[in-house]
Amino acid sequence: MDEIIKTIIDIFFSLSLSLSLKDARALPFLQENFGGIDIFQDFFFFFSLSLSLSLVKLTLNPPEGIIAGPVSEENFFEWEALIMGPEGTCFEGGVFPARLMFPPDYPLSPPKMKFNSEIFHPNIYVDGRVCISILHAPGDDPMGYETSAERWSPVQSVEKILLSVVSMLAEPNDESAANVDAAKTWREDRQRFNDIARRTVEKSLGL
């Protein structure tokens, strides 16, 4: 795990050197945390500012069970994340890779998220796309979420999304199912659901 974090920090530093961007508004924050590294001065530009800051925050202070960062230096708007199956649930022990795709106008619009590995879960489409309320603005109501559910707004963060995904793994919402089959199994045959989940966990570890 330390290796991966180190790699992400490396990518972040090389990114900051290789890109020529125009916003230095993040500097005070970075100086506080990195002791005034000048190379950041050129790093931030308009829309990716909050993305950059999310990355710094996630890298410095990662929430438990989550690692995330850009896939490559070329594309800052596509991230890779590793989500650990939450303890005490049927997904415990699994390590699930996922992609986050940020739109050009992030954070005005939410990112999309897709698991790269197979997960049988009520709120994940068969092709891996994650369907939870925080990834949708109110009004975008494909699954008819309950009105009190957390929604996307420009003051939400990547960290919040990832934490919501972890809690989604722990507590599936079978009321608004993206995978109807999984929702039905979760509701009616918990034993079978747990068995499938355990196989998914083993698969995710390459067993």
Partner: peptide
């Protein structure tokens, strides 16, 4: 707080 999260803060509301 819920009202603000759903009706005020999101764009296009």
């Amino acid at each position: 707080k819920e009202f603000c999260c759903q009706e005020v803060e999101p764009m296009n509301k």
